[in-house]
Simulated assay, not measured.
Amino acid sequence: MFRSRNIFSNFSSVLRSFKYSNYVPKSAGRRHFRSFKCRKRIKVTIIGSGGRFGQTAALLLKQSPRVDILAMYDSSDINCGTALDLAHVDTKCRVMAYCGEDQFDDAMKGADIILLCAGAEEKAGESQDEFFHNNAAMGMKVVKSYAKNSPDAMLVVATQPTDVLMPMMSELLNQNTAHDRNDDVLWQVDKFNPRKVFGMTAHHVIKANTHVGEVACIDPSEIIVPVIGGNSTETIVPLLSQAKPCSCIELNEEERRNITYRIKHAEEWVRSLRKHKGSDFLSCALALVRFTISLIKGIHGEEAVIECAFVKTEKIPGLSFFALPLLFGPEGVQQVFDMPKMSEYEQRLFQEAYFELRKSILKGEGIVSTTKDTPLCPSFCRMVDEPPKAKC
């Protein structure tokens, strides 16, 4: 007769003799598993994922284990095919596609981080006013949906011109309530947190790291060069004197000037070599993704997460926005560091950037009425009535 009890008892003795602790570390127990399950799930929304900049950023984010949901929005229906193609990448990140104006709010809902990559590229012979006005419409559209659907999310503005667009968007959100020309409420924010809105300048940092590494014959990934100021050629201030590690980097005055020039004009060179048919979207996308990962680390409470970004600050008298090194935390900017020490040459660059940056900030803030519950100017009302396309 078949005796199942004896078989199970023998099998149990085999299990008891198997020393599980010899093969699995103690850290792989229940406590480790529970801490992983309690990690906050992160949803990242890319506005303008149909362009080259947005597509590259989406591909890099899809490969990150820190991103759980990647929402891709673009006004073009082609975005659905792009999202489906990206969904075939074998990582745990879930890809969601949103197309058309009627799905814009759905893409923003529930987002932890919103990346604004949409907007027109600067064309040859185009004035700065024309360039800004083309992209200001998209900024207005994002502000309206952000205030309504995801006011607690981190908002990263990667659309140019950041020096003007960031102050405009922050001032719009700071109004708490905005009306159109018909006195209808466009949006209403209970409490705006400026520590969650960033203008991206991280791409200047990686370019500075690269150029310094080439001259100093050091791996660029081991170098950190802080870049302060703004996001235009006139307002970028690379602090080569503060490059880390200091003991390995020795540059003479001529090398510092040449590297600074290459950093400030890097985008112009790329655009000219591409016959004005594209900008430096590859390096910018990588910088944006690294910056996003740093934000996620801050949300998860990791310590010593530092990046440079263009934010609202009172550190620089006379300027309400400035790019400085930041410490990230669960609520965005946890600390804005003081102005680093500068050499005489860097001080001259700062003085030149100061006046240009001040004009850009005043231009962005001046477009928006500073009085609460005051109707917006007709140009912004027209932007709401005629929303632009999000494709880059």
Rank of each mutant, 00 (worst) to 15 (best):
F2H: 14
R3D: 14
S4I: 09
K19G: 07
N22S: 14
V24K: 12
P25K: 05
S27C: 12
H32W: 14
R34A: 11
F36P: 01
F36K: 15
I42V: 10
I47S: 00
T56Y: 00
A57D: 03
A58D: 01
R66L: 09
D68W: 02
Y73N: 01
A83I: 04
V89Y: 15
D90V: 04
M96N: 12
E101M: 07
F104Q: 02
D105W: 03
D106P: 00
D106K: 15
K109G: 05
L115A: 09
C117Y: 03
A137K: 13
A137D: 02
M138L: 09
V143A: 12
P151N: 06
P151A: 06
D152K: 12
L155R: 06
L155A: 01
V157F: 02
Q160A: 07
V164H: 04
N182F: 12
N182D: 14
V185D: 08
V185L: 10
L186I: 15
F198W: 06
M200Q: 14
T201I: 10
V205E: 03
V205N: 00
V205A: 01
I206D: 02
A208N: 09
V212L: 10
D219M: 04
E222G: 08
I224H: 15
P238T: 04
L240A: 02
A243C: 05
K244Y: 15
S247H: 15
S247M: 11
N252Y: 07
E253F: 13
R257T: 15
T260K: 01
I263L: 05
K264F: 06
L273M: 11
R274T: 10
S279W: 07
S283V: 04
L288M: 13
V289H: 06
L295F: 11
I299P: 03
E302S: 08
I316R: 10
I316K: 09
P317T: 11
L319E: 03
S320M: 08
F321T: 04
F322A: 07
F322M: 07
F328D: 00
P330D: 00
V333F: 08
Q335I: 08
K341W: 10
M342G: 02
R358T: 09
S369K: 07
T370P: 04
T371A: 14
T371P: 00
K372E: 08
T374Y: 02
V384K: 10
K389E: 13
